[in-house]
Design a protein around this nucleic acid. Structure first.
Length: 830
RNA sequence: GCGAGAGUGGCGGAACUGGUAGACGCGCUGGAUUUAGGUUCCAGUAGGGAGACCUGUGGGGGUUCGAAUCCCCCCUCUCGCACCA
């Protein structure tokens, strides 16, 4: 069999698409479809696993194009980040040089895959023309109180004297020098994403085009809980020490209280007492532990008594105030009331330290005893030892006690979120400089709009040690205060790269605009993004940040929508040998060899065929050949039986009532396939779409084989042409070079992407003879072919005549018949 | 621990709102073509049984005329969060 010349046709069509501007999309195009694939970090290496993302995006874009939409498919580069800086440290390559080299490599890879983008809209986040606007947006947030500074802990390597990113900390040690990492507090910038917690949460309900999985992950990430904030006070000093609880019903069971080691009140409470030294030493230990054991499971609960007591406002009781490693400063108020009888953590802690346990939610049928308990009782029950609330079901108790507290002014209903404010400071060079100048007189002052961008300096040294490289640039560091003109010093932290990616999708609409980050009217035309495609790993990072930023921009009147993405698709990973592909593991399949051997279309087809695209899949080198074989079969089929591209020269119509059965069957199969592939493409079921086209191909081949040596009739020829023509059309989004070439050979000229996606004829697709399964007492015993829509009586009569069924029916009485039209008949006999 | 998803031939996977389980592809077996290997083409391929048939969708129960699909219990794997008060 002849092999199709992929090595010739692929570069040819890639050139044509680029020259002809197939993917160039005017900003004012009607009937818009914004198809967006998450822009990549330009690491330089792509393997076939990465390809899935882009191949899916390209197939969707081409499909929508054929359906008549004006498709915008842009691509850019998430260019800032740690690897470029590491390359600078390790190999002395300046980050922008390294980055730009990689961008060139990756662009060539996209081209070789045949993936089309509107390259006139390309940008990279490290270009001043882009990060200028990232800075501009930062300034807007700062001006509106949504960007603020506060102290926060960083990973500090004492030997490199530098801040480490979380991924540079391995087992609590510096990945470079193996020193133990210590926490250190720095003043850092935050975005007030918590102000938007509620809107981020409720907005999820409207995102029906998002995978449920992602919505659930975001809901959990935001972590809203309703409860009551209760006013405890320190008995000895009178300091208020509020705490948040979701279980007000257990407030009468508080037997001690615990605050976080980082709690700001702690120092004052123990100052001058004989417990001061021990308590502060313990607090330091906990904080160090928190930095190292982040993520470690099941840390043993330890604590120490502060020597102080608190007053429980519901009953005036004085209980001990402890600090312990299981209380987080970041959540709630940093202090919790402990109810060991009804909270497992408190229970374990109380047992360890001999603290009292008091049951306040009881089981009337099987009463609890504090001494006999082996774990906390966390189920529902009835209030006990709870003053006037005794006897109430605890669910009711929650409401009644909250009301009572609000009435007495000792507590109030409150909502707490797990979501924290977004820490955007990075002590790094290769990021967007934070456009702020510190002035001794005026404090932090935003760089005025007209002075943006604050450019990254090039006179910096990269040692991997000491403070951020930006502090080594004399030209950068000093700047006059924009407010008073006095001496100022620039912020040397840069922005988290997630700030860049929180708005990049807007920039594609107006990539060249010099007076604003984007043109509002154009952005309003193109948004929301019709289809966003990317990895699931961004579910709780990027995809929350981009929603947050959109809401902020909406509130500032800069965009007219507050959810940026209509439909989201998260593809699964492609694994090899059971694990994630990676260069270091040596199991990454590089695309170039594959393309040299089989062509890009084979890789594309296999990638789409490999399995459900939202699930992880296993790459198989031998299965790739199946895709290649299939394309060759189609190629030879079309070469032997050329079709007419515009479909007009059909020698004889396929509608005559007296069509031979075999012709009718092929005609029907063609229309059934169009229907199936259309539905599958709409639902992202590329694997079954490919399978359906394979089936049709098999059907055409058997049809042709069935013709034997005889000369085909006009109608036979027409049925084959109709099938092959549609095979090529249906495959076009998936294997574009291949389809273009066949289309051109059939028509002489013209792009298949100018052709419309085929419609199907329901009448032609309808089966007029159906096979009905016959069950006897629920067991399959045979089948009969009947005209579609046959009545029960006729089908049953046929079944009873069937010889194969006779012995199962012989001498039995027919008790009941279950009949499902066109599907099944179940005869119940006795 | 909590949340989500998954478990189907030797393998990847199909199966619409419960209605003939295993589409499509890989692999394998046999045959044809070929000097040969490869390619290509044809046939077969869930297991058991000579056969009529029987058994089969992680395991066990249940609902139903009928369950991969619905319900209950259990097991395994993957992912996310992980002391969130």
């Amino acid at each position: 069999m002849e092999r199709y010349p992929f090595a010739e046709i692929e570069p040819k069509w890639q050139r044509r698409w680029e020259e002809g501007g197939l993917f160039r999309c005017p900003t004012d195009a009607p009937n818009k479809y914004y198809c967006l694939v998450m822009y990549p970090y330009p690491s330089g290496d792509l393997h076939v696993g990465h390809g899935r993302n882009y191949i899916i995006g390209d197939a969707v874009a081409r499909y929508e194009m054929m359906r008549g939409r004006s498709v915008l498919t842009p691509m850019g580069w998430d260019a800032f980040g740690l690897p470029a800086e590491n390359a600078a440290i390790e190999r002395g390559i300046h980050p922008p040089v390294w980055t730009d080299q990689n961008i060139i490599k990756m662009k060539a890879q996209f081209e070789a895959w045949g993936i089309g983008y509107d390259w006139e809209r390309e940008f990279a986040s490290h270009q001043p023309s882009f990060y200028r606007w990232t800075q501009w947006i930062f300034v807007k947030l700062f001006q509106h109180g949504l960007a603020y500074r506060k102290a926060a802990s960083v990973n500090w390597c004492p030997s490199c004297a530098t801040v480490l990113a979380n991924e540079q900390v391995v087992d609590g040690k510096c990945e470079r020098c193996d020193s133990v990492v210590a926490p250190r507090d720095l003043e850092q910038w935050f975005f007030k994403i918590t102000d938007y917690a509620d809107r981020l949460l409720t907005g999820l309900d409207r995102l029906e085009g998002w995978p449920e999985r992602v919505r659930i992950m975001q809901r959990n990430w935001i972590g809203r809980s309703e409860g009551v904030e209760i006013d405890f006070t320190v008995a000895e000093t009178g300091d208020p020490l509020p705490c948040f609880t979701t279980r007000v019903d257990t407030t009468f069971g508080v037997t001690y209280m615990v605050m976080a080691a980082e709690h700001p009140l702690l120092r004052g409470l123990v100052a001058g007492t004989d417990r001061e030294a021990e308590v502060l030493a313990f607090a330091d230990k906990v904080r160090a532990q928190a930095a190292i054991e982040r993520g470690a499971a099941d840390v043993e609960k330890v604590g120490v008594w502060t020597g102080r007591h608190v007053v429980n406002p519901v009953n005036g009781e004085k209980v001990q105030l402890w600090i312990a490693n299981y209380v987080l400063m970041e959540y709630g108020t940093g202090a919790v009331m402990a109810v060991p009888a009804h909270d497992q953590r408190d229970f374990e802690f109380a047992r360890e330290y001999g603290l009292p346990i008091r049951v306040v939610i009881d089981r009337p049928d099987d009463p609890l005893s504090a001494d006999g308990m082996t774990e906390a009782y966390v189920e529902d029950g009835v209030q006990a030892n709870s003053g006037e609330f005794d006897g109430l079901p605890n669910r009711e108790g929650i409401e009644r006690i909250a009301d009572w507290m609000e009435g007495k002014g000792i507590g109030r209903r409150a909502v707490s979120y797990r979501l924290r404010d977004w820490l955007v400071s990075r002590q790094r060079y290769w990021g967007t400089p934070i456009p702020v100048i510190y002035c001794a007189a005026c404090g932090p002052v935003a760089v005025p709009e007209e002075d943006l961008p604050v450019l990254l300096p090039t006179d910096v040294t990269f040692s991997g040690k000491g403070e951020s490289p930006l502090t080594t640039s004399a030209s950068f560091l000093e700047a006059p205060c924009p407010k008073c003109g006095g001496e100022g010093r620039r912020e040397t932290d840069t922005l988290d790269t997630f700030v860049d990616s929180s708005w990049y999708l807007l920039r594609y609409i107006s990539p060249k605009e010099e007076s604003a980050p984007f043109v509002t009217t154009d952005v309003n035309h193109w948004f929301p993004v019709d289809q966003y495609i990317g990895g699931i790993e961004h579910a709780c990072g990027h995809l929350i940040f981009v929603r947050f930023m959109t809401k902020v921009l909406h509130d500032l009147g800069l965009v007219g929508f507050d959810e940026p993405i209509e439909r989201l698709f998260s593809q699964g990973m492609i694994n090899k040998d059971g694990t994630k592909m990676s260069k270091s593991k040596g199991n990454a399949v590089p695309p170039d060899e594959l393309i040299a051997r089989y062509g890009a279309d084979t890789e594309r087809l296999y990638t789409l065929f490999i399995g459900p695209p939202d699930r992880d899949s296993e790459w198989s080198d031998t299965a790739v050949e199946g895709a290649y074989r299939f394309l060759n079969r189609v190629w030879n089929l079309v070469m032997d039986w050329p079709f007419d591209a515009n479909g007009a020269a059909t020698p004889e119509p396929l509608t005559a009532p007296d069509l031979p059965d075999s012709v009718q069957a092929l005609h029907r199969k063609t229309h059934q396939t169009i229907r199936k592939v259309t539905h599958d493409m709409d639902g992202f079921h590329f694997n079954t779409a490919v399978a359906a086209v394979m089936e049709l191909t098999n059907a055409v081949r058997s049809f042709i084989e069935g013709l034997g040596e005889k000369k085909p009739s006009g109608r036979e020829r027409a049925a084959v042409r109709e099938a092959t023509r549609h095979i090529v059309l249906l495959l076009a989004p998936m294997v574009p070079h291949f389809a273009e070439e066949l289309w051109e050979r059939a028509a002489g000229s013209g792009s298949i992407f100018a052709a419309a996606w085929p419609g199907f004829d329901e009448d032609a697709a309808r089966e007029d003879v159906v096979t009905i399964a016959i069950q006897i007492n629920g067991k399959l015993r045979g089948d009969v072919d009947v005209p579609r829509g046959s009545e029960e009586a006729a089908v049953v009569a046929l079944a009873q005549q069937n010889e194969r069924l006779a012995k199962h029916l012989e001498g039995k009485e027919l008790k009941r018949v279950i009949f499902v039209p066109d599907r099944i008949v179940n005869l119940i006999v006795k």
